[in-house]
């Protein structure tokens, strides 16, 4: 019996070993070594902002020539340059680094609430259940859907209940933009400091009643801008970043102080 046992296990081991050895030769997948190298320089958080299933899939697509060298949005120019080095190609243009910006600073003291929401702590749920507790239908709800969506820990809810992006950590992958049910997160050029921090499309009178830091579409910024970079559309001011030169004259003129922009001032305004 002992002999049988030893023989059976031994034989099985031999057979399987031989089979695996043959199979690994026969079914070997020829892979381009550049795939591994490209994969190594990609961020590796599998955020999916590039449109592929993950960093592995993007690395294969880049090497196969199906994806652009700068397809990794999260990696930005730095990763794009490294990928171009590996692929032995040149980048046509250097894409500008973008960061996400939450266009609302209406914290608990500044925005009126029409009631208290005590349901599931999720922005999406709050919007479905009676459009959220705030008077303003364009304001940050502060339940942190964007915080949970961020793969880089770059967005947080301030003590005042408004989401604030940490521009140093943000890679502009766009996950928070997609997660926000109000659509008030936008990708803006990282070099620019001056932004309109409101999305309220109500008329000025209505906005004024809802929030003390809401854009009332008074046009003061439009007149103040020497470059003609600001326009008011749908009762809210909008900056054309291709024209704006960060002079901040508009911020000085804004009566509700909703145009500001230095990172510190965004945080201070939101907290």
């Amino acid at each position: 019996m002992l002999i049988y046992a030893i023989a059976t296990m031994g034989l099985m081991g031999l057979i399987f070993g031989a089979l695996l050895a043959v199979a690994s030769k026969k079914f070997a997948v020829a892979s381009d070594e550049r795939v591994g190298k490209v994969r190594a320089v990609l961020p590796g958080v599998n955020c999916g902002a590039c449109g592929y299933a993950g960093c592995d899939a993007l690395a294969e697509a880049i090497v196969a020539g199906k994806a652009a060298l700068d397809a990794c949005k999260a990696g930005g120019p730095r990763v794009a340059e490294k990928v171009a080095d590996i692929m032995g190609a040149k980048l046509d243009k250097h894409p500008e680094r973008m960061v996400a910006l939450v266009k609302c600073v209406g914290n608990k003291d500044k925005t009126k609430y029409r009631g208290e929401y005590s349901g599931v702590p999720s922005c999406r749920a709050a919007v479905m259940a009676g459009n959220g507790p705030k008077d303003c239908l364009y304001g940050c709800l502060g339940f942190g859907d964007c915080v949970r969506a961020c793969p880089f820990d770059a967005i947080h809810i301030s003590p005042g209940g408004v989401a604030v992006v940490d521009a140093d950590k943000c890679t502009a992958c766009g996950k928070c933009v997609a997660a926000c049910p109000r659509g008030i997160i936008e990708l803006v050029p990282a070099s620019h400091k001056v932004h309109v921090l409101c999305m309220n499309q109500e008329k000025g009178v209505v906005t004024r009643k809802q929030c003390t830091v809401g854009c009332i579409a008074c046009q003061a910024c439009v007149r103040a801008c020497p470059k003609g970079a600001i326009s008011v559309q749908n009762n809210v001011a909008k900056i054309d970043y291709s024209k704006c030169d960060d002079c901040a004259l508009c911020a000085a003129k804004c009566p509700v102080k909703v145009i500001s922009g230095r990172k510190e001032s965004v945080e201070a305004a939101a907290s």
Partner: peptide, 9 residues
């Protein structure tokens, strides 16, 4: 192990 090699190919 065999199966993994096989379907990978």
């Amino acid at each position: 192990q065999l199966e993994e090699l096989f379907i990978k190919k």
